[in-house]
């Protein structure tokens, strides 16, 4: 009989951040797709309807929330009192370890490599990529938002970001990139959730519950 010990892996802040981000992204994808390809509400008077308006409101609300979550996550990566994990995002720089883990994922070997970092090399790559995706969608989202709201904080952000808009080739390109990245998120989610289950099933570390409880199981060496 193997023995497990439960060890704290994720701080509360990290867990709240994670699930808040997950929720926001989910809502942003749904509302985003409506904005991209809305259906017509035929019945009723124009003045009595505001579906697109509301959907955009929700999208932008959670968009701004995601901006906040993103900065918070970056803050945690550097200044978390529990574990500032920014270095862990570079686990993939250990090439041998990375290759070993690919072999493990491809079911060539039966056991993955050991690593001291919080994430394995492939995860670190995925999460780094993800952070990049969040960054891009946040920036493009802020530009799109700035184009339509002309006052206050948004306007200031927009002033700063406008050169990026011009560099990218205008709002249409910004919007397109924003849409494109939506698909990257969907792809990420599919793989990410599967890998969480897979880790649970294969390594039996309780990966899924760990994002809720904060604790992960570790096998005790005999």
């Amino acid at each position: 009989m193997e023995k497990f010990t439960s060890e704290k892996e994720w701080s509360v802040a990290m867990r709240i951040n994670h699930w808040a981000m997950a929720l926001s992204i989910f809502i942003l994808i749904v509302t985003g797709f409506y904005i991209a390809d809305p259906f017509t509400v035929s019945r009723g008077e124009t003045v009595g309807k505001f579906l697109m308006g509301n959907v955009r409101f929700v999208h932008i609300l959670f968009g701004v929330f995601l901006v906040f979550l993103f900065f918070w996550r970056v803050y945690l990566a550097f200044f978390s009192r529990f574990h500032a994990d920014w270095k862990d995002f570079f686990a993939w720089t250990n090439i041998k370890c990375t290759i070993d883990q690919i072999k493990f994922y491809l079911l060539i070997t039966k056991k993955g490599p050991d690593y001291k970092t919080l994430y394995g090399p492939m995860q670190s790559l995925a999460y780094l990529g993800l952070m990049f995706m969040v960054f891009v969608i946040v920036i493009t989202g802020l530009i799109l938002m700035g184009a339509g709201y002309h006052a206050g904080f948004t306007a200031i952000c927009y002033k700063i970001l406008r050169p990026i808009e011009n560099l990218m080739g205008g709002l249409a390109v910004v919007r397109y990139v924003h849409h494109l990245f939506t698909w990257f998120f969907i792809l990420f989610i599919v793989v990410h959730m599967y890998m969480a289950f897979w880790y649970d099933a294969i390594l039996k570390k309780g990966t899924i519950s760990s994002m809720i409880s904060g604790n992960i199981f570790k096998k005790l060496e005999e």
Partner: peptide, 29 residues
């Protein structure tokens, strides 16, 4: 603006001035 267009004329989008905008917000397409 950053593209050399006079702000007084090119400061806002077509979408911001559009007479059909209420229909956009109401999902009437």
């Amino acid at each position: 603006d950053g593209l050399g267009r006079p702000v007084w004329a090119y400061g806002k989008r077509i979408h911001d001035y559009c007479e059909r905008r209420p229909h956009y917000d109401a999902s009437e397409f």
